[in-house]
Design a protein around this nucleic acid. Structure first.
Lengths: 338, 338
DNA sequence: CTGAAAGCGCTAACAG
DNA sequence: CTGTTAGCGCTTTCAG
């Protein structure tokens, strides 16, 4: 039968060892203000009793959670999972636990994020999960924060990927293919990344004197992407290229093209963003982003703020890489793969 | 300039409201032992001061973390991410935070898991992350636990997916294709799932009088799978089928086949497990598993144990689904897709 | 080197 | 209805 939770406290160890709780505390955490004989005795007894200091007691006394938080919209695509992984990896190395919070489609994201804020020493906020007001409020409370793939708020550290640069690179490539009729699939209002990519899309078209079309709304998933693409492909004056806001949408578009009997890229070119694993097998031209690094950098920066380093506000834009495969048009037989 | 962390405590609110801290506590958490006028005054002041009860103080007093943990090997494939997502979703609904811990290739997984155990009211342990001894120790401490995709330990609740059933179904299908020379790629010792799948593989071959070959070791990633497959494909007496322990390995095998100039499935058939997104685009025959449900069920079960329901030890085996695509051989023109 | 004691911030009896 | 008070378990001065 299981013993009671937290059966053994520092008091019991102290009692058995015939010392005070202060001595137990010191002995167990490597203070040098303990006689080595005492330390050994205490350690032996603690071991025997399987004593593990209660985290809450410890944290309350130390005023530290020894934990970090991360907020993201979702975890279903590989995109956010990679960020979380990079974040957790660094945090764990630094001896901090990580609490996660997915806001996607849940009620009261603000309340949940505020709650999380009370459980950690620092927090990363990814994408369009909470309003600027909430971010500002948390930042004002003094909690170290870092924003990821999201517009900056006041003086909060922010890391983004280079949507503008990669968008322009992608568009230049497509324009070089000779395309002139473009469509953009994705919802700029739903995600800062999508907005940034769409801005680059518009900009590049305007520069060459093409009137940019409005974005065609689509959520970040295959079926939505497919539905959006279907409308585009069956409309009159079909575009030559579908620039999709992420790979899942693009994968859906590929599906729609196939269903419509259109050859890719001969009759319709399609591009994505993120370079998920499936993109490779689908021959999808896309943009690779350093997601892992994004998360890892966030954890590193947070640590500095948590430990009180006096660092100025930081902004960083991570470099991306255009991955050209077959879906955007015909190329010399040069397959660009890792 | 940011204020100090946790500037405002219950004492300040009490002071400002001219009441005791007990009253503040009651007013704010909806006790009915407060005059409504008092409650309103307290609420107003708490609001004005942006008072948020310190989690640590609260948890220490209540003896509850209001948090759950989940331990997994990795998060890079979609497999574990889905489990975590299902888990987090249910936990969040129940008002509990979730702490994650990835053990993959880190030193001292036991210590990390034990640490995590001290921060939560219940924990899910996924796959081959910690020894039975550690699991037993935590279970004995009375912490509610649930094991996922892992062999049971003493009386701990356990949920697995049906590796045996799906393995047999897959093998029957392959045998029906007429194949007789099989190879298995994956490391049974590294993962209970791989072991279960390999057992089914062996069993089915033995039943039809074929001597099962030893498993060809490979980690869960494309490049390892590719390397393992290469050895098999270039050896003498090449197998007709590569049964791979998961999709990433299978995707690597597909790559190796292409590199070796072998047509799939005409010259070599290949199958996977998990049905990751890329599997669909690669035309990979595989086994789909209810990962999300796995995580969600774990969170639900834990909640019952945490709230003290007297439930007997539970074991559940989740059903899986064989997804037949083109990589395992030629079929009637029936594409089985969602 | 060691112990006593004062918190950390909150909840929950227990008395009014 | 409200206040007092005793913890929750640990860390850390402050005295010896």
């Amino acid at each position: 039968m299981p013993q009671d939770r937290q059966a053994v406290t520092i008091y019991e160890v102290a009692g058995r060892a015939g010392v005070s709780i202060a001595t137990v505390s010191r002995a167990l955490r490597g203070s040098n203000l303990v006689a080595s004989a005492t330390r050994q005795r205490v350690q032996a007894i603690a071991e025997e009793l399987r004593f593990r200091p209660n985290r809450l007691g410890r944290s309350l006394a130390e005023g530290q959670h020894a934990a970090n938080g991360i907020v993201f919209p979702d975890l279903s695509g590989p995109y956010y999972a990679e960020v979380v992984l990079g974040y957790e990896e660094v945090a764990a190395e630094l001896g901090r636990s990580v609490l996660i919070l997915a806001t996607h489609g849940r009620p009261e994201p603000a309340a949940k994020v505020l709650d999380l804020a009370g459980r950690v020493d620092g927090m990363a906020i990814l994408g369009r999960t909470v309003d600027d007001a909430v971010v500002a409020r948390i930042a004002d409370s003094g909690l170290p924060l870092v924003l990821l793939a999201r517009p900056p708020v006041s003086t909060v550290d922010t890391i983004t990927t280079d949507n503008d640069g990669s968008g322009q690179e992608l568009m230049r490539h497509l324009l070089d293919h000779g395309y002139r009729r473009f469509a953009y699939v994705g919802s700029p209002d739903e995600s800062p990344d999508v907005a940034g990519r769409y801005a680059a899309f518009r900009h590049c078209l305007e520069v060459v004197g093409i009137e940019p079309p409005p974005a065609v709304e689509s959520a970040f998933n295959v079926s939505d992407g497919s539905a959006a693409a279907r409308r585009l492909l069956t409309g009159r004056r079909r575009p030559e290229v579908l620039v999709c806001a992420n790979d899942e949408i693009a994968l859906g578009a590929l599906e729609a093209a196939e269903a419509a009997g259109l050859a890719v890229p001969a009759e319709i070119a399609i591009t994505g963003w993120d370079d998920v694993m499936a993109a490779r097998y689908a021959g999808l031209t896309t943009v690779r982003q350093p997601m892992r690094v994004l998360g890892a950098t966030a954890a590193t920066w947070l640590q500095e703020r948590i430990t009180g380093s006096r660092v100025p506000v930081r902004r960083e834009v991570l470099r991306t890489q255009l991955v050209i495969r077959s879906s955007c048009g015909f190329h010399e037989p040069v397959e660009v793969e890792e």
